[in-house]
Nucleic acid binder design. Sequence first.
DNA 1: ATTTAATTGCAAATGGATTGCAAATGGTGT
DNA 2: ACACCATTTGCAATCCATTTGCAATTAAAT
Lengths: 153, 153
Amino acid sequence: MQTEELRCCGDFHERANLDKWIEILQSTGLKLTAPRHVILEFLHKQSHPITNREIYNGISNDCDLASVYRSINLFIKIGFVQQFDFGDGIARFELIEPGLDSHHHHIVCTDCSKVIEIDHCFPNSLTETIEKHTGFSRITHKLEFFGLCSECK
Amino acid sequence: MQTEELRCCGDFHERANLDKWIEILQSTGLKLTAPRHVILEFLHKQSHPITNREIYNGISNDCDLASVYRSINLFIKIGFVQQFDFGDGIARFELIEPGLDSHHHHIVCTDCSKVIEIDHCFPNSLTETIEKHTGFSRITHKLEFFGLCSECK
DNA sequence: ATTTAATTGCAAATGGATTGCAAATGGTGT
DNA sequence: ACACCATTTGCAATCCATTTGCAATTAAAT
Ligand SMILES: [Mn+2]
Ligand SMILES: [Mn+2]
Ligand SMILES: [Zn+2]
Ligand SMILES: [Zn+2]
């Protein structure tokens, strides 16, 4: 991994125009409702994984918090959104381009919660070994790094 | 990683006699109470990470569920217990030998929840690289694998 | 045995997430 | 434009893991 390879969260996601997601949404027979549109729009602007409540606050109560949860769960099911767990019991989400391999990880400051992307996925290269030695198949994983960022050191 | 290197959970933990933990507990000025003793004893018998409720059921209501939570939180603080997150929103714990490097991971069957130990920790070798490229220090991580076990395939 | 701070049991509270249901809505066809 | 209707929403209630306030209990030291 070289320094110049490091990309910020925005470089991973949100490459395409919002219309891309909207078209897919409508082509599936699902409704493009006001809540879904505004949530999609807000996710599209983010550069880091955010919580349901952050979305709710970010769209200034344009829809009910329960609808945020329901929309996000839908977006996960149709592959619009990826969920991350930073260990504090609150799920975090980021918009991804459907169909693309957006698998990656983060490093989170344990002091100020600053997030930086880790664009490589190291455990992938070990999947075959683990398959062979455990008998498991269709192996996935969850990996997040934690530490003190340069400001909090 | 060779096949003969694979160890089950019991080989990792619970090597020492229960007295080892009890002595350390008392030497710290903490009380050896009935709940703590029975919980420690139960943890000592396990071969996989277990939840607070599983402990509570396993000791057949020998103490209150809140006391299980409190004891486990204490055990974490003094380094007796290690916490794992298998992604279902329920914390899991296993007894470790205090002072020893017990850092390891698991692979969990997404169908039957069977757990197998992964005794190597691959991301450790990448910590230095991540430090250099993110500016973070004191880096830790959480990594768990998921998949279908041989019976559920 | 007495003392005292630590610990427990019990019940209530917390907080993220889900859900039942009646009202609202967007997409489709007229 | 309008009517239709399955989907979706808002709202409130609920769920469930975990935490907490407090009075009663208890381990350990004197
Ligand atoms: Mn990201
Ligand atoms: Mn283990
Ligand atoms: Zn920081
Ligand atoms: Zn299985």
